[in-house]
């Protein structure tokens, strides 16, 4: 099972790299395709605020988008199997060290990416999400081999609250990765003048970023609270300014600033997008915090 977990992780990461390639192909093709569409629109459209709709044109889906999605799903299955195999091998939810946590994080990025791409009908996102997933996969694969060995849980970690705590954190981190991708695309898309045809409009990218926070922010609060509940049971203190929990709080608050910024006219737009970038940077800081922050979270021999 340990071996199977590793091979599935390798396969998943490689598959995601292929999916990323297809997504990028799609984006490149989209540049050409979209340009002709907007030329069409320009011919039919009047200059008024509302546009008269003629017969609705059903655009064919570009084949690269379909290949990319299929390969992405295959990658998801591999990564899902990697998580599952690890679960079976260690006999508990596999998030007790950086290797297990990283595997689950990669899975979560890919899964949530697929869900949001489907919801917003935006395969273009995949070109930005897949590289993040691949980078995370490679990072996990290059971790010291000792972390791959199955070792038993120390007593403090044997608590179902902790399992939920980390599980929810993985979902929150994953969704913030999607928000980050949307923010990068937002910043790449031009504000005025001619918009880049290979990227969705800023309005849609802003919606995706905002949606990621609507999901991730409450989840982060749940993470902090469950951490507090567990600490209260285990150590008798709800909050002790442990470096990793403090980093998680800073991350949450950064998204809190984003929520307020998004509602201010002068702060929505570029500045809000930069807050999403900063928020994800803090997410990564929190994720890697075990290495240099010390405190109660330095478990599992990292």
């Amino acid at each position: 099972m340990e071996k199977m977990n590793f091979y599935m992780l390798v396969a998943g990461t490689m598959t995601m790299a292929v999916a990323g390639g297809f997504y990028i192909w799609y984006v490149l093709a989209q540049g050409v395709l979209r340009r002709s569409v907007s030329a069409n629109m320009a011919n039919t459209a009047g200059g008024t605020s509302s546009v008269t709709m003629s017969e609705q044109v059903k655009q064919p889906r570009h084949p690269a988008a379909i290949y990319a999605q299929v390969v992405n799903w295959v990658g998801l299955v591999f990564l899902g199997l990697a998580v599952f195999a690890r679960w079976m091998a260690v006999g508990h939810a596999p998030y007790s060290n950086q290797y297990e946590f990283g595997t689950a994080f990669t899975f979560s990025i890919v899964l949530l990416g697929l869900i949001l791409m489907r919801q917003f009908r935006q395969p273009t996102l995949g070109a930005f999400i897949s590289p993040i997933a691949v980078a995370m996969g490679i990072y996990v694969l290059t971790l010291p081999i000792t972390l791959r060995q199955v070792s038993p849980l120390i007593p403090a970690l044997q608590n179902p609250i902790l399992t939920i705590h980390v599980g929810v954190a993985i979902v929150a981190y994953g969704i913030f990765a999607i928000g980050f991708a949307a923010a990068i695309m937002y910043l790449l898309q031009r504000d005025g003048g001619e918009k880049r045809t290979w990227l969705p409009s800023r309005a849609i990218l802003d919606d995706i970023g905002y949606r990621s926070v609507l999901i991730g922010f409450p989840l982060m609060i749940v993470v902090l609270v469950l951490g507090g509940v567990w600490a209260n049971i285990a150590w008798g203190a709800f909050w002790s300014w442990d470096p990793k929990e403090t980093a998680a709080l800073a991350t949450t608050l950064c998204y809190g600033v984003y929520l307020h910024a998004h509602s201010l006219k002068s702060w929505s737009g570029n500045r809000a997008a930069w807050l999403l970038v900063l928020g994800f940077a803090l997410t990564i800081f929190t994720f890697f915090g075990n290495y240099f922050l010390g405190g109660l979270h330095t478990y599992g021999g990292v």
Binding site: V37, S50, M53, V57, K58, Q59, R61, F120, R121, A203
Partner: peptide
């Protein structure tokens, strides 16, 4: 029949037409 829609709605419609 739809006579007119604001750009935000048109954009949604285009997306849905393209991606199903």
């Amino acid at each position: 029949t739809i006579h007119a829609e604001s750009p935000a709605i048109i954009e949604q419609r285009e997306l849905f037409a393209e991606m199903g």
